[in-house]
Amino acid sequence: MSKFGELIETKLPVLLAFFADRHEASKEMHPILRDAAATLGNKAKVIKIDVDKNQELAEALRVKALPTLMIYKNGEMKWRQSGEQDANTLVELVKEYL
């Protein structure tokens, strides 16, 4: 999990998306996250985390539902929600922390 600390200890907002390819709603979020990342450019990071490959992290953060989305800035969680979101909503949420 030390890599996780490095990911979130940044001045840029970091949008984390916890997903599993076996989960339909998670798969539907992939193009939405790509669009959000393209819109935000270098102003923020968008990172997808596969819960099947990162079970320890998902358990530590109590990720129960998929997809689960979180925004971190300076190592602190600023926002969290489970369920699908559209790209515009995600971009606006991240912009609040620029």
Rank of each mutant, 00 (worst) to 15 (best):
A44V: 03
L69C: 06
K27A: 12
H23F: 15
I49A: 01
W79L: 04
W79M: 01
E59K: 15
A60K: 15
A37L: 05
V91P: 01
N74L: 11
D86T: 04
Y72K: 02
M77Y: 00
G75V: 04
E84M: 14
K3F: 10
V94D: 01
G41T: 10
S26R: 05
P67N: 13
N42W: 06
V94P: 00
K53Y: 10
E96Y: 09
L16V: 09
T10K: 08
N42V: 08
V63L: 08
L90K: 02
T89V: 12
E59S: 15
A20V: 07
A37P: 00
K78M: 11
E92G: 02
L12E: 10
F4D: 03
K43T: 14
L33S: 03
Y97R: 01
T89I: 09
N74C: 04
S2E: 14
N88F: 08
K73Y: 05
I32S: 09
M1I: 09
T89M: 08
Q85H: 12
E84D: 00
L15K: 04
Q81W: 02
S26V: 06
L57Q: 04
A44N: 06
E6W: 05
N54Y: 03
P67C: 14
N88H: 08
A25Y: 10
K95F: 09
V51Y: 01
R22Y: 13
Y72I: 03
R62W: 09
V51M: 04
L12M: 10
L40K: 05
P13R: 07
V14Q: 03
S2T: 12
V94Y: 00
L33N: 02
K95W: 10
E56Y: 09
L93E: 07
P13N: 12
D50T: 11
Y72C: 05
E96T: 05
L40W: 06
N74T: 06
M77H: 00
L66G: 02
R62E: 13
I32Y: 09
A65S: 15
L69Y: 01
A25K: 13
M29F: 12
L40H: 08
R62C: 11
H30Q: 15
E96C: 00
N42Y: 11
N88K: 12
N88Y: 08
G41S: 09
K53A: 14
S2P: 00
A44K: 00
N42H: 10
L69F: 07
L16M: 12
L66M: 07
Q85W: 09
V63A: 05
L61N: 06
T68G: 03
R34T: 14
K48L: 12
L90H: 01
A58I: 04
A65W: 15
D21T: 15
A37T: 04
A37W: 02
V14Y: 03
T89N: 07
Q55F: 13
K11P: 10
D86G: 06
M77K: 12
L33F: 07
L69M: 10
V94Q: 02
L57C: 05
K95Q: 14
F18M: 08
L33M: 11
E56V: 13
G41M: 12
A44G: 03
